[in-house]
Computed example of a mutant assay.
Amino acid sequence: MTNPIRIALAGNPNTGKTTLFNALTGLRQHTGNWAGKTVSLAEGNVQFKGKTYHFIDLPGTYSLFSNSTDEEVARNYIVFERPDVTLVVLDATSLERNFNLALQILEMTRNVIVCINLIDEAEKKGIKINERLLTNRLGVPVIKLSARNKVGFDLLLDTIERIVNGAIECNPTQMTYSDEIEEQIKKIEPYIREMVGDRLSSRWVSLRLLDGDERLLDEIKNRLQLEEVKKTNEYRTAIL
């Protein structure tokens, strides 16, 4: 049996993220607490073209720094658990406010789909959104949805499948910062890359460390130590 394809859902509160999750998974879901945390995560499965897609509804957050437990849980899942695809759910009527989180996620991971939800509400307000232009600008698929009306679901699932099987290659746009910050990134990124390898985006980690995110550094150190212990135990088992 092949492992299910893991799809994380991220987004600001009140963007319809959980409505999308519920509409996709229906009764095929359950809720459990994140290991060692009081934050709960809902998980559920979707069958599509003979494959199982396992959706994880992350806590709604406005950013993915270390300002709260919700933010850390959402960030750590995307960064360390490395889902096959991350869906960023935005409110079509408040795109400017929502894009802060989307741009953060594009710095963290490659396989991203930007889901512009509540498109029906936007149309009522006369808001027009050019998803093709956004796709070209962001370097990842952008899909317009109405979760409560189940509009756009087939295109979403098809796009997920095409990313997973390699038919679509995501090339997320990267934010360019001031000359001073970019120079600091160049200085420390080689050391970060040596430490984390291809597990994490060395540029993103460099940015977070420049911002003084010590809790992320502690998390990385703990994860690396656990990996070393696991490798040592596997080696011992192999030679015994």
Rank of each mutant, 00 (worst) to 15 (best):
T86I: 05
E43S: 12
N3R: 14
P190S: 11
L207D: 03
V164L: 10
G50P: 05
T176D: 05
N3V: 11
K125H: 12
G26P: 15
L41C: 06
N149D: 14
M195R: 13
R75E: 13
R75V: 11
N22A: 11
V112K: 02
R162N: 15
I239F: 11
E227D: 13
A42E: 15
W204V: 00
D120M: 07
R75Y: 10
R97I: 02
T135H: 03
N76K: 06
C170Y: 02
P13D: 14
I5H: 08
S68I: 00
D91T: 03
K124T: 10
R28V: 04
S146W: 01
A42G: 13
T52D: 14
S40P: 08
E169A: 08
K124Q: 15
T86C: 12
F21I: 02
L118E: 05
Y191P: 06
Q174C: 08
L240E: 14
K144T: 10
F65A: 14
A102H: 01
A167F: 07
K17W: 00
I56H: 02
E71K: 02
D70P: 03
T19D: 09
P4Q: 13
G152F: 01
I129L: 10
L216S: 02
N130W: 00
S202K: 04
R199A: 04
R203K: 08
L156C: 12
F21C: 09
M108H: 02
N136C: 06
N136R: 13
L101C: 03
I105N: 11
L207E: 08
E169F: 01
K51V: 10
V88L: 12
Y191H: 13
A42D: 15
N3K: 15
D91K: 00
T15D: 10
N130M: 00
R223V: 00
